[in-house]
């Protein structure tokens, strides 16, 4: 309570200010949208699409420049999916897992690297799309749908056999897991990115020069790690749903 009040006192400081939980609302009929999230996510999506188009516009056998970079990214994503899902099944899931990784990674880094706050909005401020709970919950729910789809398309109704796989005793825990998986996925990402932005914001508020730099570097590191964790876990859940013997749980 007191710290929050003191934070509010610092709001009088002219160099920086901290806004949390204020949204830039758009009205779409009776629906309310977070405009700032869409603006930055469109930037991220546009960046990804432009880079992809540039990388694949003129494909060479000997790659160079941006094609090389994106091939490196693609090989990284393929390795990730292959490790988690398995050699046989991973190929159709590369676009989903890869887009999760790329979208989250570019979102996180755009929040850390691009000075969004220079662009003034009437209300709220531009931040990484992943520091909004809507984005992370959307991605986590899509992951849930993806692994259900993977399980059902591979085994049909036999997918429910996964729930009693090692011992029937596991059934309630497995059902709870279906809820905790998206919950932990979304909150882990949301919490990490928001906390990172808040820490940097608070430090900038207190000492505007040099001192926040190590924390910012750390923020870049955690941002990358969070993207990797989200994509890896999504792939692991998908792989687990398609596994023949329901075993091997991973929690981070």
């Amino acid at each position: 309570m007191e710290t929050l009040i003191s934070l509010n006192v610092f709001n009088a400081f002219p160099l920086a200010e901290l806004e949390v939980g204020k949204q830039f609302y758009w009205e779409l009929g009776s629906l309310k949208l977070h405009g700032q999230v869409f603006l930055t996510s469109w930037f991220v999506i546009g960046l990804l699409v432009v880079v992809s188009v540039l990388a694949t516009r003129n494909i060479q056998r000997i790659p160079s420049g941006i094609q090389n970079l994106m091939e490196y990214a693609l090989e990284f994503i393929r390795d990730l999916a292959k490790n988690q899902i398995g050699e046989k099944e991973y190929r159709p899931w590369v676009p989903f897992v890869g887009t999760l990784f790329l979208f989250i990674f570019v979102s996180n880094w755009s929040g850390a690297l691009i000075p969004w706050k220079l662009i003034k909005l009437p209300n709220g401020e531009l931040t990484a799309p992943t520091s909004d709970i809507n984005t992370t919950v959307a991605l986590a729910l899509l992951t849930s749908l993806a692994y259900f789809y993977a399980g059902f398309s591979k085994k049909g109704l036999g997918y429910f056999g996964n729930y009693v796989q090692p011992v029937p005793f596991m059934l309630p825990f497995k059902i709870i897991e279906d809820f905790t998986k998206p919950l932990s996925l979304s909150f882990r990402l949301f919490g990490n990115i928001l906390a990172d932005e808040l820490v940097v914001g608070v430090l900038v508020l207190l000492v505007p020069l040099f001192v926040p730099l190590p924390v910012m570097a750390l923020g870049l590191f955690t941002s990358a790690i969070q993207a990797l964790i989200f994509a890896t876990l999504a792939a692991a859940y998908i792989g687990e749903a398609m596994e023949d013997h329901g075993e091997g749980h991973e929690e981070h």
Partner: peptide, 27 residues
């Protein structure tokens, strides 16, 4: 902070569109 609204389904939709677009242009 925990203001869930229509942003969520639209973001999901947008993400699936991104998956489709990147699948065609990148993967």
């Amino acid at each position: 902070l925990f203001d869930l609204d229509a942003t969520l389904p639209l973001m999901a939709l947008q993400f699936m569109v991104l998956v489709a677009v990147l699948n065609a242009t990148f993967y």
